[in-house]
Structures are given as C-alpha cells and as structure tokens.
Design a protein around this nucleic acid. Structure first.
Length: 458
RNA sequence: UCCCCGGUAGCUCAAUCGGCAGAGCGUCUGACUGUUAAUCAGAAUGUUGGGUGUUCGAGUCACCCCCGGGGAGCCA
C-alpha cells in the first residue's frame, strides 16, 4: 500500500479504513497501555496524531520512536474523539524505520535559536519554521514562473559560466581546471579549459537582452554569484535572481511589471500557503499580515530620485550619511523612505547617471538615467532595473566616457546596430522576496545551504 | 574590511565586589492520564571557546587568537 501524505489526510472529507502514514516523530506521549505519536512528513506544517494501543503490531518498539525517528503507521483514519484535531490515525501497526538516539539528536521538541539551527542546516528543515520557509520558497518560485507564463514571457536559461568580464555587477568567482601551483593570470588562462579567463555569472542580463530583442519578452531565473566580501543578513555569495527583459518597453512598463510581479507572488503565497504563513505571522513578525495585505492592496509610491533626496534632506531625522543629489541612497535612507515616510513599497527612479551602470538609458536632462529601484520595508532594495540604452551612439559614448573596454561589448553593441529597439528589464533578488513574504530577517535562513563570505559548510 | 555585542550542561540562559559552577527546558527512570510543547516524583550531565598573564584564589580582570550574532560599506 502506498503512503498517504499528511496534508491529504488532514483535509479528508471522511474516515478511511486503511491508510499508511510515513514520517518523522515530533513527539510521543505515553499512557499506561497506549501512546500518542505526533508525526510530520513535511507535506504541510501540521502533524497528524496517531493513537497506538499496546496490542498494535510493533508496539514493543514504541520506546525507540522518540523525537526525530522515522516511522510508518498503518491504521484507520478516524474522526478524533479528543480535542485539538479533526482527524487522527487509529494504528493497527507501527514500524520503526530509522531511530534517532535521544541523547545525541540535536532537535528537541521546543524552540531553538536560528543561530543554533544554522549550525545544523542539514536537520533544520525538520523544524516547523524551516519546513514552512522552504515550502513557501518553493511556492514563490512556481509563482514567479506562473506570472511570466501568463503574460507570454519565455523562460530563458542564461549561462552560469561566463567568459565576459564585462558584466560589471560585482566581483566574480573564477572558474578554472588549473591545479594549485599552475600559473594563473593572462598566460595561464590560455592553457586553461576555455583558453581564457572564465567566471561565474553575476547577472543574466546581457544574455537576456538579445533574446528580448528576438522573442519579445523573456525572463531568466537561476543562480547568480557574487564574490563580494559582504557580511550582512541580506547578502549571499550564491543566490537566485529573476531577470525579466521586455522589448518595446520603457521605464514605466518596467515599474508596472515589477509592481505586478511582487503583488502576484505575495498574493499567491497568501492564498496557497496560508498555513505556513501563519507561523511567520505568529512567531517571526507579528505585523507580517498587515504589511503583506497593504503591499498587495495599495499602489506602490513612485518618486524621482531627486524628490527622494529632497524628502531625505527634510526628514525630521539625522542620518549617518547625508543625502545629496549625486550620492547613493544609503541603507538607512531606503529604510526611512519605505518604513517611515511612505510606510509601503517605494519605487525610486531617474537616478544620476554617474552612480549607475553604462547600459542604462540616458534621459534628456543629460544628468540622469532611466533606472529604478523598488524599496520595501525592512529589506530595502529588492528590485533594481532600468530602461536600456538602445541608441548605438549614446551607448558607445557612455562606454567610452566610463573608460570601459569597447571590444568586450562588441557583440552586445550588435543588438543596437541591427534592429535596435527600446527595451527594459530588472533584477529581483529571489531570496529577498522570500524574506519579504515570511518576515525572516536573515538571508541564510531562506537558503537551504547558504554560501556566504568565509562560510561554505555542508 | 570597520564598529558594537556575545561564547558557561544537549538547548536557552543565570552566577552580586575576584571566593564551593546553577536554573528552566530536553534526556533517562518510575508513576499517572484521550494526551495536546501533557502532568507529578527522582536521576545523570561541565576542558565556563583556546592560550598566556595578574592573583593566595579567575566563569569574572588584562592581552592575543578562534568562533557566533547585530550594524555599516558593497549590492540583489
């Protein structure tokens, strides 16, 4: 007989004579002649309670079915005579599949600190919180795909290994088959696997642009790598990014898309993983549901960078860094705008060209580019994007002005030489979306096995 | 890389002025109960992160190192 998942059993509309449940024991309560087993199989947050009488087959092993042990319970699904649950399993047989020594099994039937659980990342998905977090993460990933599929976007798999050192979005990880001691540098690179320097991608954008200018609307969704020595709760060396790119689109289309995407994903999680979300609303961030409901219901604020700077300069609050036109908006500024001033997501657009990338479309004022960042409460920047400079002469001029190597971009410039078209896109940090949806404040707690500066465990 | 905080039992933490290392939870044993993080009684559990120094005496003070957390910078 096949096992039935607990999520299905708990939503049953009637009793069933014969079922089998397989999962991990969360806790056991013994009476004189019978025991209660709380079993979780990961299919949902809730456990199912099994009642095992002393005459059930296999009861002699009940003492070994402690917290963490894996078991199979065969029996009938019945309406529970006890309070606290609608359904329970009246066991006719229990089987110990894998024991868990109670003296050494690290998870206890009580709350643990996030710090402790990070040290046992291979076991933490067995906790309520991390089980819920990773079910929500899965739901969000599917939600991203549904969103784009519904809008006629094509899913592009952009390369992970790049030979271009021109992506310009941050420090890169070197990819090599050279052994320690073999020469690196330009000479060594010729003898390396690709015959040139290779790196892990920091962005799929340069791949996505040519495909947008062919398939119309595309998006990438995959791993991204940054070798920045960032040591914060919001950065990882390996993370996932969603990067849509639209042909015949401008900055307003781009802002609309970003706002719609965020709202769609949050709405999906609220509808489809309500049970898991409740855990976070109750234990992690009591204001979570209010934040999410507001995010879904209200239009995001949209303000030009210059206006944002004015708001910051007039703010009844002193910042460590002074806000001024031409300077980057600092983390403290982002948080002030999203958390205190507007109290909702804010899209800041039209940034000074000197603090933004070469490919962003130059505005007619001569000093700003059509860039936009979406700032959300608690997390700060979650989306960064722009209209792309589609005019060949303007783009070349900008590359020259910024002292970049024109040769690097030759193939990229071809897209502007032949049938160029206005286009726009952005990058959404996927982990930050998971953090937004759950209220989790550390990126390491929404990644299965996080890779961060000076940390590569598991 | 910089600033701040921390490291004591399996986990979360306490330990007064430098003076016998503790509690709760968990675990184990027993009792009891259609129980709900069950309850009651009892038991076991320590290189106080590592090192050096000061002192009659260091968990506590000084210095160095290691590890963890928070914040900043960089960014998604």
């Amino acid at each position: 007989m096949k096992r039935t998942k607990i999520a299905a059993l708990l939503s049953a509309d009637g009793p069933r004579e014969q079922i089998i449940v397989k999962g991990w024991v969360r806790t056991r309560r013994d009476a004189k002649d019978f025991s209660f087993l709380e079993i979780n199989d990961g299919s949902c947050l809730a456990n199912i309670q099994a009642v095992v009488d002393a005459d059930a087959k296999g009861y002699e092993h009940i003492k070994d079915m402690g917290t963490g042990a894996s078991v199979a319970v065969t029996g009938a699904l019945i309406a529970s005579p006890g309070k606290g649950q609608a359904w329970e399993v009246k066991a006719s047989e229990v089987e110990l599949i894998g024991g868990a020594d109670q003296d050494t099994f690290p998870l206890q039937k009580k709350r643990h600190s996030d710090e402790f659980l990070r040290a046992i990342a291979h076991l933490r998905p067995r906790t309520n919180k991390f089980g819920a977090a990773f079910r929500i993460r899965s739901e969000l990933a599917l939600s991203v795909h549904r969103f784009f599929q519904d809008r006629g976007f094509f899913y592009l798999q952009s390369p992970i290994i790049t030979g271009s050192d021109c992506e310009g979005a941050g420090e890169m990880f070197r990819v090599t088959t050279m052994h320690p001691g073999q020469p690196l540098g330009p000479e060594g690179a010729k003898a390396d696997f690709f015959g040139k320097e290779a790196n892990l991608t920091v962005s799929g954008q340069l791949s996505a642009e040519p495909f947008a200018l062919a398939l119309g609307d595309v998006y990438t969704f995959g791993p991204t790598f940054r070798a920045e020595p960032s040591d914060t709760a919001r950065h990882a060396a390996e993370f996932w990014m969603v990067e849509p790119e639209m042909a015949f689109a401008d900055l307003t289309d781009n802002m609309d898309l970003a706002e719609d995407l965020l709202k769609h994903c949050i709405r999906d999680v609220m509808e489809r993983r309500a049970g898991d979300l409740e855990l976070f609303a109750k234990w992690v961030d009591t204001s979570l549901m209010g934040t999410l409901e507001k995010l879904v219901a209200d239009p995001f604020e949209r303000i030009p960078y210059a206006e944002a700077v004015e708001i910051l300069r007039k703010a009844p609050k002193s910042f460590e860094y002074e806000a001024a036109f031409g300077k980057d908006i600092q983390t403290e500024h982002e948080r002030y705008l999203a958390e205190e001033h507007f109290k909702k997501p804010v899209i800041v657009y039209d940034y000074p060209k000197d603090i933004k990338a070469f490919y962003m479309r130059q505005n007619e004022d001569g000093r700003t580019v059509a860039a936009m960042d979406v700032l959300v409460p608690r997390i700060g920047e979650i989306v960064g994007g722009s209209a792309r400079e589609e005019r060949l002469d303007r783009l070349e001029a900008r590359i020259a002005e910024m002292n970049l190597n024109m040769e690097c971009y030759d193939w990229y410039l071809d897209t502007r030489r032949f049938g160029t078209a206005p286009h726009a896109g952005f990058g959404l940090g996927f982990e930050r979306l998971v953090m937004l949806a759950t209220g989790v404040t550390n990126i390491r707690d929404v990644i299965a096995f996080p890779r961060t500066y000076k940390h590569l465990e598991f």
